[in-house]
Design a binder for these strands. Sequence first.
RNA 1: GCGGCUGUGGUGGAACUGGUAGACACGCGGGUUUUAGGAGCCCGUUCCUGACGGAGUGGGGGUUCGAGUCCCUCCAGCCGCACCA
Length: 903
Amino acid sequence: MTEQAVYDFTALENKWRDRWRRNRTMATPDPGPGDKTFYVLDMFPYPSGAGLHVGHPVGYLATDIVARYKRMAGYRVLHPMGWDSFGLPAERYAMKTGVHPEVSTEANIATYKRQMDLLGLGYDWDREIQTSSADYYRWTQFIFIQLYNAWYDAEAGAARPVDELPIPAEILAAGRRAVQKYQDEHRLVYYETAPVNWCAELGTILANEEVFNGKSEQGHKVVRVPLRQLKMRITAYAERLIADLEALDWPEGIKESQRQWIGRSEGVQLHFKVRGSDVEVETFTTRVDTLGGVTFLALAPEHELVDALTTPDQRAAVDAYRDEAACKSDLDRTRDAEKTGVPIGAAAINPVTGRPAPIYVADYVLPDYGAGAVMGVPAHDERDFAFAGKYGLDIVPVIDPGMNAPDRERVLAGRKCWIEDGVMLSPPKGGAGLYHAGMRWRDAREAVADHLEVKGLGKRKIAYNLRDWIFARQRYWGEPIPVIHWEDGTRTTVPEDQLPLTLPHIDNYKPTRQAQSPLERAEDWVEVTDPETGLKGRRETNTMPQWAGSCWYYLRFKDSRNAAAMVDPALEKAWGMVDLYVGGAEHATLHLLYARFWHKVLFDLGLVSTSEPFRKLVNQGLLTSHAFRNERGIILPIDEVASKENGVFVHAASGDVVTRVSAKMSKSLHNVVTPDDVVARFGADAFRVHMMFMGPLEAMREWETDRVASASKFLHRVWRFTTEGLANPSSDEGKPVSLALTRLVLAVTEDLDNLRLNTAISELMKFLKVAEGQPVSKATIDRFITVLAPFAPFMAEELWEMAGSSTSVFEAPWPRANEADLKAGIEKIEVVVQEGGKRRATIILAPDADDQTVREAAKARLAEMGKPVDGLDLNRVIVVRDRKSGQIKLANISVQAYSTSGV
RNA sequence: GCGGCUGUGGUGGAACUGGUAGACACGCGGGUUUUAGGAGCCCGUUCCUGACGGAGUGGGGGUUCGAGUCCCUCCAGCCGCACCA
């Protein structure tokens, strides 16, 4: 080879893209016995119409690099990609343009796929799935049916088939319909009429997890309306969902978000007698110790006892208040600092004091938490304090903040709310057993709870913030729910051998009326007749939420073409948990919680072999672009701003001076950069190297296309170095070069194992710095190419071919090196001499010199510098060695070691 | 308010279990080559000082022979949750 080829990245990348596709280089065979497996997964995307921008592939690049490395390191690697292709945007697009979601989805997928190929993302496309294809959602429906036909056995702590649900004798005696009703009430999938989150703009109801500050993800208003809804009993798993987080290698923030979302709190459910009535009101409290301080009860407006307890003179006011509360959006209801309510005329009896506590309806009480009713203790709860203040209710303290509390007097006078430490006051009168004067309130709480349980007035209970998952959506573009409602009032699921229940084509995607799915229009599809009995029925017309498909897709990748099962059990087991899962943090309480829930159900039912789906989770940081902000804080698009020579930015139209700021990529700011742009300018390898070199995967960063030039420059140097070396390999390579290669292999391997891709790339740069312009052996060049390959796969393949190989570089084994080679290669070492931790000088020593030699040498060096070392206690000289290699790094002389000499 | 995360040069960021702070880059400065260059190559680049030397990882305090790293405390920023009784 005499003529040095030019690094023509476009031609070279096209060549290998094509060759990889033809040779199916990235296809993953199923694992065989004894194979080491590694499952690395990206959160699959919803294929939107806009295609990928440079921010999307941050995580995909990282997993691709890891997957290629692991494969070379001898693992059987599963690294698939698919499409979360059901969802609202496609349906809304269809409403506007009339283009069927299936058509637009296909087009979008084609774009995504082309862009992913462009970047050299080595997915095994043989395993590609899309949630909207019937081959896939057939199994989503299958799983739905498994959940439908299961109940949660609290004693066993696991889900079981509903056939195994013990039926109480009296139900059994009441007949078949009673049994069926009983079973229906226990299923993991059930119907219930309850207030739900209704978004009129989207024409659908939403799950609690999909409502943010009273608005939908898109910012549309959400209100609570009572509707009959399909739910999944995720709350049955609350305890396990919290407990099993412990063992997962996930970011602490995500785990904590889930814990908070589930929101476990221990308390007591207790009932209050209503004065002059047999009715009792259940309340839930975490502070039974404050029972004596209860001066009112507050019921949620939706509470079922409100009607019965409201007195005639309060009826009108109560009804008006309830109507008002019903119309309020979640935002109005939760954000109003002001506590409002209306007395219903009845009063409960405080069991400690015997005094009446008026009952209110108040919308700060949520209907679906605890008992939907609270005991008001204004003295020791800030919300209750605010409420009592507004309506002039008694404020009776039961806890003494203690002598040292500055606010003690005001608390005891009922003018301030106290929620911190303290001891129980003496009871106003009586209340034995429910009052523990002098006891710290935390202890009193337990004592009172014990007492209530013994007397049958209440019992300990754990309440969760988590609500059951509202599972139905009034949409077209989602999985049909395989349920049939029969005219006799019964309900069945579609027989499994009739799956998939395919989505019918319709012409109009608008909801028919409030909370009715557009599927209602597909009359032929909706109406069914039982062929055996002639019974008529209607199909469920709601569809599944977007999260359904993503709840189990990681399982399907293991066996994505299986027509007979969701996944072959042997393959499910062989691949095991996802070893590395990379995606955005925005799914903390949505996808990641739902997927864990389904996985646990499948585990209980024996369909999967692990109790958790994802072993290690990493959230990639957000990639921003930039924009400009003027003095009024308005963000301006980048093309409306000009840069002046003095580094000042000026808004072209107004002449205002503006500042450059980080901003999310968005169409309106005209700051979207696509991978296509970057690849055309610098090539995919440079894009990959730059993106990963920018910083840690988890960190947020700002994109600047010009900066890819740095990675491009590096790759040009790599190209020149390697091609020159291959043209003229040397038989006697210098020691510094071979040492640098050993160090490179060790460092890159360690960095890859820890997902430190930025430092791995800097190691490649360091090696190049040492080896450039030096004689280099063929063996060293080969090893360098293999180490480069995960990062710059296109160039590595080309160089590998030039190096004489006829197979892919990804068939090559990952090079090995050991620490001992490094150590053996070093003859002399520079040791730092410190004085009291401050660097003073360096000495040259053999790396294996013993401590005494180091100490003497350090002392001699200090003497040379004119330091008074006569009284130096050599034992006080601390010699520090590298933990791994045992090499000396530094010698530190304690300043106190001089003190004996009196200096 | 609650919770999580983060504060290191002009910039992005290195520094594994406490052990030479600023690796590797960007930018900037100087030099060189020259085919025009916003190209290549080489050198320099934390701050103060002419130098010796000193200071330095958001502020303050502590532990230690030695602290970016551990502990306490305060400050700032980012993200998530938020009437859950």
